[in-house]
């Protein structure tokens, strides 16, 4: 009887050990899989969310590509004023700024509608996937693949995308010291074949 009791206890412990090891194995596998999956957190840019958090209006200066410019100096970008929700949260402000940039209001340049759409700095189907602000002042801007595909070639075009986002964030959000770009949640060597985005932009 006593021997039987010990055997029963041993069996229970064995089953528990198997259960724990199986649980740890599965949870670790799921953790690894979760890392690989796309991060699809909310941007909190819905009007009702912003209105709820809003304490007023905030005027921001967007830096957009100046038509005809080729150099990377002051003339490369021109400013446009927009009004966004004041929330006191630098991340929400930064996200609103990038969203405003992406909703580019393209001036007519004597081109047909189709050409005008193709010559937008940011294509209409592109979107901001995520924007984080790290403690050291680095804004991590995760762009969708459509934005990269909308860059139809040329260093000037790539610089227009990079510099308009970088400058708009730095000039309007004091907490942003530098901007680091991701595409579809991943680090890339270049944005669209020319300009390296392996390091942040100041």
């Amino acid at each position: 009887m006593k021997e039987g009791k010990w055997i029963a206890v041993a069996l229970v412990l064995v089953v528990v050990a198997i259960g724990i090891s199986y649980y740890l194995f599965i949870s670790e596998r799921d953790r690894q899989l979760a890392i690989r999956e796309e991060v699809t957190e909310e941007l909190d840019l819905e009007p009702e969310v912003l209105e709820d958090k809003s304490t007023g209006e905030l005027k921001v200066k967007l830096y957009v590509y100046s038509p005809g410019a080729t150099d990377s100096g002051k003339k490369f970008l021109r400013t446009e004023e927009r009004t966004v929700y004041e929330t006191g949260d630098p991340i929400l402000t930064a996200r609103q700024i990038v969203r405003e940039l992406l909703a580019e209001r393209k001036d007519v340049e004597g081109l047909s509608g189709e050409q005008r759409v193709r010559l937008r700095t940011f294509p209409p189907q592109g979107h901001l996937r995520q924007l984080y602000l790290l403690d050291d002042g680095t804004a991590v801007v995760d762009l969708s693949q459509e934005i990269v595909q909308g860059i139809l070639g040329g260093v000037t075009w790539e610089l227009a995308v990079i510099e308009s986002i970088t400058r708009s964030l730095r000039e309007n959000v004091p907490q942003v010291k530098r901007v680091f770009f991701l595409v579809e949640g991943k680090q890339r060597r270049t944005l669209a074949g020319h300009v390296s985005i392996e390091e942040p932009f100041m």
Binding site: Y65, P67, G68, A69, T70, D71, E109, G110, L111, Q115, L119, R120, T121, L152, G153, G154, V155, T156, W157, A160
Partner: peptide, 13 residues
């Protein structure tokens, strides 16, 4: 050969 998000941009760079 260049490409820019504006038809006004021209010349060599």
């Amino acid at each position: 050969v260049g490409g820019a998000p504006s038809a006004q941009t021209s010349g060599a760079v």
